[in-house]
Every structure is written in structure tokens, then in C-alpha cells.
């Protein structure tokens, strides 16, 4: 897979949909591509991190620690971005991500990521939108599952 495929993949991410191709190419070129074998952990909840990941190939699970054990809150596929929260606001990782299959990702360092956000304000807007969607999705999922296992209504939202 060459940098051209990576750019194709980046273009399908809503965050980057409006960015010119040369800029995406630069983003890809200055980022490292890493292959995780199935079962490998990209990062764990509560670790500090400075990298966001864009899935190029394969699937990964997002797991959140709950009092009832790890909870699978999402599955990531090609053109999904994950890990950007930790680098956006310097908080520990809010979830763990584990490779479900052999996984190829593009690692975007905090440095590069901020440079892109600074240079292209529309990425900022897109981030807000994506985060809001994700929050809504996660909340709904947790509520459904809480109802399903009859946990009291005060369960973490």
C-alpha cells in the first residue's frame, strides 16, 4: 500500500473531506504507518498519549472500563479516526483500543495534528461535529446496555 492509498483513505474521513489532496499527502508522508497484529493493544484507557490513529485496514474494538468489566462501545474500520481526544485536551485515554484483526493504522502525532488544525480551521469544526456524534452514540449505547442488564438508573452516563 503506498501513500496514494493512504490519501484515498484520509479523504473518506469527514474530518479531512474538505482538505486539498497535497495537504493530505503531506500529512500521510510525515506520519508513520504501523501494523498491529490481531490482539495487540494500540493504547489502554488512562494511559497518557500523544498520538491519534487513522485506521487504514482491518478492524479494532473500543473498550471502556466499567464497574461491570470492559464494555465494547464501538468497532473501528477503515477511515475511522481514534485517540484524538487524548491529544486534544491532554487527558488520559478515555478508552482502550484493541486490534480485532491485523490492523494497519496511520499514526498522527500531536504535533502534526495541531499543525493541521491550526492551518485548516474547517478541521476544527469537523472535529466538533464528529465528537458530538460520538458522544451521542456512546451515551445511547451505554443507556441501552444499562437497561438491558438492569443496572440501576444511576449508572455512569
Amino acid at each position: 500500500m503506498s501513500i496514494i492509498d493512504e490519501v484515498e483513505c484520509l479523504r473518506r474521513i469527514p474530518l479531512f473531506a474538505n482538505i486539498e489532496v497535497p495537504k493530505l499527502k503531506l500529512l500521510a508522508f510525515t506520519s508513520e504507518r504501523i501494523c498491529f497484529p490481531a490482539g495487540d493493544v494500540l493504547f489502554r484507557q488512562n494511559e497518557m498519549g500523544n498520538t491519534a490513529y487513522i485506521i487504514l485496514d482491518g478492524e479494532a474494538h473500543v473498550l471502556v472500563d466499567t464497574p461491570g468489566g470492559p464494555l465494547d462501545v464501538a468497532t473501528l474500520r477503515r477511515s475511522d479516526i481514534v485517540g484524538e481526544i487524548a491529544i486534544l485536551c491532554d487527558v488520559p485515554r478515555t478508552a482502550s483500543v484493541i486490534a480485532e484483526t491485523d490492523l494497519t493504522v496511520l499514526c498522527i502525532s500531536k504535533d502534526t495534528f495541531f499543525r493541521m488544525v491550526m492551518e485548516f480551521p474547517q478541521i476544527g469544526v469537523e472535529i466538533m461535529r464528529v465528537l458530538a456524534q460520538r458522544l451521542e452514540h456512546t451515551t445511547r449505547q451505554v443507556r441501552q446496555m444499562a437497561a438491558a442488564v438492569a443496572v440501576p438508573a444511576s449508572a455512569p452516563a
Binding site: 497535497p22 495537504k23 499527502k25 503531506l26 508522508f29 510525515t30
Partner: peptide
């Protein structure tokens, strides 16, 4: 061609020149 395409938009002294 690729290098000119990637880097010609960057300001002089940008660290990307040195690194990439």
C-alpha cells in the same frame, strides 16, 4: 515532483524540511 508538491507550500525554516 513529489517533494516539490509536498513541501513547496511550507514557510522557510519549517521543521518538516529538516525532518522529512
Amino acid at each position: 515532483e513529489t517533494m516539490v508538491e509536498l513541501f513547496s507550500g511550507l514557510p522557510p525554516g519549517h521543521e518538516f524540511f529538516e525532518r522529512f
